[in-house]
Amino acid sequence: MPSVTSTPTAGTAALADATASDAALRRFLHGLPGVDAVGLEARAAMLGTRSIKTTAKAYAIDLAISMIDLTTLEGADTAGKVRSLSAKGRRPDPTDPETPKVAAICVYPDMVATAKEALAGSGVKVASVATAFPAGRAALPVKLADTRDAVAAGADEIDMVIDRGAFLSGRYLQVFEEIRAVKEACAREDGSAARLKVIFETGELSTYDNIRRACWLAMLAGADFIKTSTGKVGVNATPPNTLLLMEAARDFHAATGTRIGVKPAGGIRTTKDAVKYLVMVNETLGEDWLSNEWFRFGASSLLNDLLMQRQKLRTGRYSGPDYVTVD
């Protein structure tokens, strides 16, 4: 199977030059090979046709559960809701203690302390959106304060949104500097740092070429994770745009040796969808990425479907929504 992209041959040194000035960055990003849209969509569709059954399915379901960033990002979030979601994250299926924990609970910054407390000792991480999520329309100092707040409250991971307005206007260096600044704000006093996920909101970037540019921009700026979307717009994670992110991460790894995580978010609701993404990870990035260290699902209702499928595999009977929590 020929790869859809040609791997950029730029070495680490050349990449450093790329970010030297606005003009150099623009030259680099616009010099990335164009995306073959038809090929990308065909490849994503083809990877979605694999039939995953029995033991492989059981493995995929458990892996997918362990990769979930269980998310609640609503204006109506209360401390109680965050606590109950945290309880669910620690023990997704109380009827079966073998069920793996989710990777993280994803909340707004003001709920980080609540989630942290509820998850203490469980190993489940707390992720917080920041930087004026989901629009990202705020001044840089506000975004940085937002980030520092979340980190200070104990967030293990920060999900930032890029300034799509600046990106679409072609002010790439501004976006680059902003990601850099947020990355610095992720540092803790003890020298460690929260992991930074950069959200592109692919649904607002219009073209696949733009998505590829955004990926490289974020990876050059020091993102630990690249993430498709906020879940707040019409088009969220789709197999083609997630595949594009994965290919960018693969190419970046080949060029620099640095490993970047990928997180599709929004619109992934069924086990079938989740398994398709896992197939895509395996085929594009390889087995090394098949852990929650390097791949996550941003989702809320997906977990219930995974649990129902898990119950089906365990008992042989189809389960129903009466046997999982109402979130």
């Binding site: 119950q311 042989g316 009977r317 189809y318 389960s319 129903g320 929504p321 009466d322 046997y323």
Partner: peptide
């Protein structure tokens, strides 16, 4: 059989 065993029926 799958309908009779289905937990949501």
């Amino acid at each position: 059989p799958p309908l009779a065993a289905h937990q949501d029926v």
